[in-house]
């Protein structure tokens, strides 16, 4: 009996330490203080990977912070790293019950949880993406990214830059935003150079950096000299591309900092375009029921070139033409 209680004591201590560490690491309350007269608009973000993943999660965190800087009087709370859906659901519920005005569930996998939670908090607005479904609820907005468009543009560039005419794409699991991007990129390559080979490799994991690294190795062994990939685990692949001196196209965030020598361009999400619309709607009293999309036309999707990369002028010109074509509808990005 004595031993039992002693064990328990240490377990509890360990658990507390662990939770404390996880809590500190997981959330970054850049709180703005409630005392400002109650006018402060409070936004919470719940997202699957790290806020600085140079990918999906960072795109929304950066966007919310930009909106905050522009509008002011906004308080932001972030719970990241909730790759377990149950943890995310708990965080979403917490924020809603704490009276946050807008709770952003940044992951298509959170839809089921949101559908359950949202009706319980009619005064809170929820936004989730990437998705197109608001479940018919009037306090849920959905948002998505036309990541196929940027993918298409960069696919065109990749096809022009490739000498081996073999292009490799690394994805996590064939769903949602990742699938959209991968298919768009492949369509771009196909449009520019129908003779090029596109090898697509879904590793099966959003988080396995080592596997993404080996996927890049496999692509290069198969002859690829231009690579791209989507989701947070691709940081492993960028390293390999750098080592082997093959070109890289990034998406979701600007990935130039990972390998300034070989990153050609990145498709960057500027969710603030639609966040602005959502905040305006809320201010007008409409709490949901609509789906938004960022794309090249509304500047929610931007191709950011790596200034340090010596991009041939004809390639850049072709890219700009392609963007214009997609915006005016003359090119179908798939």
């Amino acid at each position: 009996m004595r031993k039992h209680t002693r064990t328990m004591r240490w377990l509890v201590l360990g658990a507390v330490l662990a939770i404390a560490a996880a809590a500190c690491g997981g959330s970054d309350d850049s709180g703005g203080g409630d005392g400002g007269g109650g006018e402060t608009f409070r936004i919470a973000i719940v997202a699957p990977s790290a806020s600085n993943d140079l990918a999906f999660t960072q795109s929304i965190v950066d966007a919310v912070n930009r909106v905050k800087d522009e509008r002011g009087n906004i308080e932001v709370a972030v719970t990241d790293g909730t790759f377990v859906v149950e943890d995310a659901a708990a965080a979403i519920r917490d924020y809603a019950s704490q009276g946050y005005d807008l709770v952003i569930a940044h992951g298509s996998q959170y839809g089921g949880s949101l559908q359950e939670i949202a009706p319980e908090f009619p005064d809170t607005t929820f936004a989730w993406g990437t998705a197109a479904d608001t479940f018919g609820l009037d306090n849920v907005y959905a948002y998505e990214a036309a990541s196929n468009e940027g993918g298409y543009v960069m696919g065109v560039m990749g096809a022009m830059l490739s000498k081996s005419k073999v292009i490799g794409i690394i994805g996590p699991i064939e769903v949602g935003d990742a699938k959209l991007y991968v298919d768009g990129y492949a369509a771009g390559v196909e449009a520019e150079d129908p003779g090029a080979t596109v090898n697509i490799n879904y590793t099966g994991s959003f988080s396995d950096v080592g596997l993404a690294s080996e996927a890049a190795q496999a692509q290069i062994a198969a002859g690829a000299d231009v690579l791209t990939g989507t989701a947070q685990m691709v940081v492993g692949a960028v390293g390999v591309a750098k080592d082997k001196g093959v070109l890289w196209f990034g998406t979701q965030s600007n990935q130039t900092s990972l390998a300034p020598e070989i990153v050609v361009a990145s498709q960057v999400y500027h969710w603030e375009v639609i966040l602005d619309q959502i905040l305006d709607q809320i201010a007008a009293g409409k709490k949901g029921g609509e789906t938004f999309k960022i794309d090249l036309a509304n500047d929610g999707i931007v191709i950011e070139y790596n200034d340090g990369f010596d991009l041939p002028a004809d390639v850049k010109q072709k890219a700009e033409e392609t963007i214009a074509g997609i915006v005016d509808g003359s090119i179908d990005a798939g």
Binding site: L11, G14, A15, L17, A18, I19, A20, A21, A22, A23, C24, G25, G26, D28, A50, S51, N52, D53, L54, G81, V235, V238, G239, K242, S257, L258, A259
Partner: peptide, 23 residues
């Protein structure tokens, strides 16, 4: 317990000391 500690602590230190991944 040790696992959760390592998971949380490594992430915390990374956020505080490094921030954005650098190669």
């Amino acid at each position: 317990g040790v696992y959760l500690f390592g998971l949380g602590m490594s992430d915390l230190l990374f956020q505080k000391l490094v921030g954005t991944p650098l190669p």
